[in-house]
Write a protein that binds this DNA or RNA. Sequence first.
DNA 1: CTTTTTATGTATCGATCAATAAAAAATAAC
DNA 2: GTTATTTTTTATTGATCGATACATAAAAAG
Lengths: 210, 210
Amino acid sequence: MPPRGRPRNFDRETVLRKALDVFWRKGFEHASMADLTAAMGLNPPSLYAAFGSKEGLFREVLELYRRHGGSGIWEPVADSASAREAVAHVLRQSARAFSHEDRPPGCLIVLAAPQSEGASPAICEILREHRTRNISVLRERFERAAADGELAPETDCQALATYLATLQHGMSILARDGADGATLMSVADTGLAAWDALISRPPAPAPDPH
Amino acid sequence: MPPRGRPRNFDRETVLRKALDVFWRKGFEHASMADLTAAMGLNPPSLYAAFGSKEGLFREVLELYRRHGGSGIWEPVADSASAREAVAHVLRQSARAFSHEDRPPGCLIVLAAPQSEGASPAICEILREHRTRNISVLRERFERAAADGELAPETDCQALATYLATLQHGMSILARDGADGATLMSVADTGLAAWDALISRPPAPAPDPH
DNA sequence: CTTTTTATGTATCGATCAATAAAAAATAAC
DNA sequence: GTTATTTTTTATTGATCGATACATAAAAAG
């Protein structure tokens, strides 16, 4: 059954996609409500009735981003066949996604609100948690790999995960600086080569391929 | 001979240091002139007479930053004894500098204006050039190492330099997220271990220590 | 001294910020 | 048709943005 009053004449997800594009290109602080209402085709009162505030709008945009926008980078990590495959996927998919023609360069979660002071503290905290979760996802996969025997038991999974997430976050800066897909992919490939070299267990007594 | 009119009653470098702190903590866009005048102890007309505009002030702050603030990271690269020593210095000095108690976390040049649209285009371009120069400094040192025999002649110095600068830029994000000195140093150490493993010339016919 | 020059303090400029008040319009319930 | 409910449009709100006009104060030059 339809609701009582006058129906909305805009689709919620459609206008959220427009808002995502603005936030992605300009960041949270510098995306003005005038920018957002113009891109979304809404008057301010309609926007505030639907999303509550600029912060509420950004929260819903973030959900959309994680559902459709920047996805495909971190989701497959937990179910990847190996730690190496997870690393390869994260780095290469980031290289592809961050240089996609139809999207703003880099990652919204890394670039939208990098200032610890000044920006909305709640927004900063949400984005920070997302970035921290990236590290945890990698660490948990590495710990499983250490238990499976893919990685040496004494591997510092936390350090490895932090290092790789740091590299991946840096790729957003590189993309925002205008790097093309080939440059980003060369960073990913170098990172992967470094992983292979690092993981080849030099301290182990003898490398056993079985 | 002293100048003709009424002398200034503030020291230029002293107030620039105050401005540096504000820009470093808040970024270019979110540091308001009210923040800056309050921190610098100046009235707006004095500030504008001395520095011309917010952009002009930031340019001078950047010069000060490169002279005294965030220095010690990139300067020694060109004169380092080896490429490995340059890499070790950049990563470890970044870990130390980005977690220094007396300074805001992370690097001003990476964090001050990450938005390509919305922020002042001139400021964005200046910061982008600084980041690009970081890559060039590393690349040139690596090319020299390849000529010296430290690195294999076929080494892709551009890819290596971009990869390392990307990691270092990511460390600013990590620091801004609240990582402590030990965490940053573990990223630096992991990156250095990856370098050592990567550079040990696996494709070469036979490792010759001479 | 008077004149010239530069810096300072007070008060504020128009523009833009995020967010709303109020009334008109469009639907369902009755 | 009438009422109740919700959305839309129009026109603003007070606050803050970066940047200045204006008058006064403090120095050197004559």
